[in-house]
Design a protein around this nucleic acid. Structure first.
Lengths: 122, 122
DNA sequence: TATATCGATATACTTTAGTATACTAGCAAT
DNA sequence: ATTGCTAGTATACTAAAGTATATCGATATA
């Protein structure tokens, strides 16, 4: 990689465009109907495919498979295959994936204060 | 309102379903192609419709109008009409909207650490 | 009279996201 | 031989999100 495209937190905060781009990176990782339920399901323990499917009752295997692939590609989830019979596949959050809980906590906090602040004002 | 559906931060953190639902509230407010650019454009100053449109060069008036309505309905943005000629309409973030910057900062921080942690690992 | 500005809206379209339903391979137990 | 388990895939569809392009009404200016 020739070009130095790493920018600092300060720089990103100061430049609206860089700011939006960098925040978007995070947003893209967690956007979509099933990403949060899946991440939530893996936050405290590793799980197997069918296991996740059971915790998220309405997801189809097609979507679960697709979303897990997305998360894996984005470095959020690690996939491990065990050569048992029948085969078992374990999914777990990466270190970076676990760190996302800091972001989710902030989102939870804001979401709840926002609900408070907005009650009855519609 | 008869039913007491207000839950505490602690309760929400402890219950995966409540957690996902509450975080989703926040996510829904900022999801979509143009929400972040618009919020970014309003973070430091009030702006008029055409003004926002100029700062986000590729947005169509249809999308800008729709997204601003969404943001207004969600209590993120306040819209003020001035009876000048031609008419002027000013958009600004609400208090709650400004507080969202705490969340965005965390997202920025995580996004940048995640990029560091993931470099070359694909 | 024609043209421009502001803050949009109308109609028709394409693209992306998500759903429904059925199916696969490999092996074990009944 | 049939059934069930695992972790998915295949095909066809509907719904939601976003784009393109033209137009509006009220007023001001050239």
């Amino acid at each position: 990689m020739e070009i130095e495209n790493v920018i600092s937190f300060k720089e990103a905060k100061a430049c609206p465009i860089q700011f939006v781009l960098a925040v978007n990176d995070t947003l893209n990782v967690i956007s979509g109907k099933w990403k949060l339920p899946i991440i939530g399901s893996l936050l405290f323990e590793k799980r197997r495919f069918t296991d996740i499917q059971r915790t998220i009752s309405k997801i189809t295997p097609r979507m679960l498979s697709k979303e897990l692939k997305d998360l894996e590609m984005n470095g959020m989830v690690k996939r491990t295959v065990y050569d048992t019979t029948p085969i078992t596949v374990e999914y777990e959050l990466t270190e970076s994936g676990k760190l996302l809980s800091d972001v989710l906590d902030k989102m939870l906090e804001w979401g709840m204060q926002h609900r408070e602040a907005t009650i009855g004002k519609n």
